[in-house]
Structure formats: structure tokens, C-alpha cells
Amino acid sequence: MAADEKYGILIDYEWCTGCHSCEMACKVELGLKEGEGYGIKLHEDGPTLMPNGKYEYLYLPIPTSLCDLCAARTEMGKLPTCVHHCQAACMTYGKVSELAEKAAAKPKQCLFVPC
């Protein structure tokens, strides 16, 4: 991998259901016990009544400073465990330049470059 080729995680939060699988998969991978924090933390907003009379319910997991993009896994050809196990299949791992293109192609996505 060229040094300038940054990798990241794109989250299509239109589909994030708040299932916490990314959180737990990550804690297991990083060996973080109860109380030792998270490598990625889920944030919740809603259900909120919007001016159009509809409710909105948003989830978004945010990688923390502990995230190393699953270096050990990606080195052996596996996906980051959060991406692998995401129940809504709404996380994509890849090169930042490619993910940025994907992000431009569809709304309600969020690109993280944790490290």
C-alpha cells in the first residue's frame, strides 16, 4: 500500500439501524473489556418529530482514537470486523479517494478517516 493511500470507512447512515454490532465487534477485536471504552461508538438521535409531521430516527457510529482500522485483519485479507458484521451492511471499507466518490453519489453518508 502506498504511504499516501489513506483508507477509511464510509457509513451509509440512511440504513444504520442502531444494532450495536459494530461496537461489539470492535470491542472484541481490540480486547476492550467492560468499562474500557470503545473503538467505535454508536450515537442516537430520535425518534424526533420533524416539521413535516414525520418522525426521524438517526444512528451513526463514530470511530474513536482507538480505531486502527483493524490493521491485523486487513493485513491478512479480511475486512474490518465492524464492516464485516454490520447487520444493515451499511459500512464500506476502502481507499479514501474511492469512498469519497461513493459518498458523492448518494446522500446520507459519512466518511471517516480514523487513522
Partner: peptide
């Protein structure tokens, strides 16, 4: 020591919920 969802399964396509992810604990 470790558990992963099987990505080749047409049933869950590798996905797991929290409970199986924390199976070893």
C-alpha cells in the same frame, strides 16, 4: 477463542448481532 459470521452463508452473509459477537465472554 474467536468467532466470526460466515460471509459465505446465504442466511446471514457474515452478519452477527451483539450476542454472538460476545459469545466468548
Amino acid at each position: 477463542e474467536k468467532i466470526e459470521g460466515d460471509p459465505l452463508s446465504p442466511y446471514n452473509q457474515g452478519r452477527l448481532c451483539m450476542r454472538c459477537l460476545d459469545y466468548c465472554e
